[in-house]
Design a protein around this nucleic acid. Structure first.
Lengths: 155, 155
DNA sequence: ACAACTTTGAGAACGAGTCTCATTATCTAC
DNA sequence: GTAGATAATGAGACTCGTTCTCAAAGTTGT
């Protein structure tokens, strides 16, 4: 048996056109299958592979096909509802339902990825200096000099 | 016909054990095939895929097999003579004969990667501020305060 | 209700990379 | 130099993640 189309309630989700030229692309139709994929992605915080998403989704929607899961993941990424992570060659792509800006620290052995907050450049310098000099840094002040927009040549 | 072993002069290259526990691993035997792979890698600056390396190597060593090229690339990476780059999921691994520390800027469309020198954190801050404020930055002074190693508690 | 379009699931197909194996080189005693 | 042990090779089968194809079934607009 092949082809079931949607089946339940189908809403739309808007897509953000970040970095894309306007090309009249439609919103992404949120079919029950796509919704299930998205819900798994949002519920899980382990950066699952497509296969892991597939397994989880089947617990909720047993009849879903692998192709649909792969397609949905791609569409959700395109629509800005998920992120795809490259955690090394030869490893399966991983997906992240957390679309806010963040970075990852990846284990070379098992591939596990944990979310990290990268320190700001200034904190980086301070920590690095604390390490290399043995100082306990208690404060800092970065003073920059220059010409404001109205004083700069041609400003 | 299968199996030719080396064929010409075979030297060794030492391997650096960066980040590895000492495990009595031997040096990498530099067979003519491996040498050919390494020479292609050093001659080319385009971050080639294994398939591209294979094509180039065959111009010099027509009889070489794909498995040997893949194996050699892996061994050279292990031996610290080459680097493997992950430039996105679903794309073939790329190899870099330049093993000195550097970063890459990757084209989302064609996958081309160019070497870049990342600015230091301080330069980053200065450039960012110049951009966001419109100031022409002419100099800066970062002053940190703290306790030197002999003054810090327990120092 | 009907036509046009979209989505689906199954499975074939694909590409990158690894594994197996018989064969051939190279290395280490002697 | 020769023999035996060990390592490397090339061909091709194989694995795995992912995409493609296609008929069937769902959805949308009128």
């Amino acid at each position: 048996m092949a082809g079931r189309g949607g089946g339940g309630r189908t809403d739309n989700i808007g897509r953000d056109n970040i970095g894309r030229d306007m090309d009249g692309q439609q919103d992404l139709r949120l079919t029950p299958q796509r919704r299930a994929v998205l819900e798994v992605l949002r519920a899980v915080h382990s950066h699952p592979t497509a296969a892991e998403v597939y397994d989880r989704v089947r617990e909720v929607a047993p009849g879903i096909g692998a192709a649909t899961v792969y397609r949905s993941l791609g569409l959700l990424v395109q629509a800005g509802q998920a992120r795809e992570l490259s955690l090394g060659n030869g490893t399966a792509a991983r997906y992240d339902g957390n679309t806010s800006r963040h970075d990852h620290l990846v284990c070379d052995r098992c591939g596990r990825a944990v979310d990290i907050d990268l320190p700001s450049p200034v904190e980086m310098i301070v920590n690095e200096l604390a390490h290399s000099t043995g100082f306990a840094i208690t404060g800092y002040d970065l003073q920059l000099r220059g010409l404001c927009p109205s004083c700069r040549p041609g400003g």
